[in-house]
Amino acid sequence: MLHLLKIDLKKLTSYLTFWVICGLYFLTLGFTTASGMEILKWLASKGAEFGASININRIPLYHFPDIWQNLIWISGLFKIVLAVMVVISITNEYQYRTLRQNIIDGLSRGEFLKSKILTNVLLSLMSVAMILSIALITGSIYTPEVEWDFFFLGSEFFFAYFLEVFAFLSYALMLGVLVQRSGLTIVLLMLSNMIEAIIKLNIFRSGGEEQIGWLKQFFPLESITNLVPLPFARYAFQEIQDCVTFSAIAIAIIWAILFNYFSYLKLKKSDI
């Protein structure tokens, strides 16, 4: 296992594009999640111009345990950057035909795919570690009274976040294996959410929302976004879902497995 991961990392760590994309990803992710208070201040000053006064100290953006869901939801928006990196990594193997040489040299097709999946796991874990540390630091600064059980109240969100990133990277990997061209794959990846939305719209527009609306959660990309619900409406006194549901986790896990299985099937039966 570790050996396969090392093989894939060996390919990536001397690749400048990898460092640039990952560097940009972790920088923007870090800065954005850490500067929420600044954004709130800016919002408040804008609001003041229009005569609305917002007391930002009453919005517990960075307070335990709210902070977990808040930061993780924001972080989820950045996963597309990592996914583009995954697409480049897999489509390069087709473009340079190195996949073929890897197989000739003695990797099995399954092992080749495993090496890519393991990198996806690593990237997902690194994202989790990044957000966990930012949340711990900012949370300790802004939370008035830190109680130890707050730390554990949000741990489910970290699992959901891991799954969210990993399932999306698996989806990107699958697209790369199926399409094999980097440009086309990246465009498809960007449009995926929209394409899925159009499909859903066409299925559910005939007023069947009440009868078959529950089907929506089973769509692949919807299942990924459903993992961590949008939290900010709670600051406008609305009810939100502030937990991760078991069904959302189960559906996303099944999709993640399916994405990787489809990649495997495609790799297995094609001549390369």
Partner: peptide, 14 residues
């Protein structure tokens, strides 16, 4: 067939 962005040495290491 090799990784164009890797050196000859690194390609052989791989």
């Amino acid at each position: 067939i090799f990784y164009p962005y890797l050196s000859g040495q690194k390609n052989l290491e791989l």
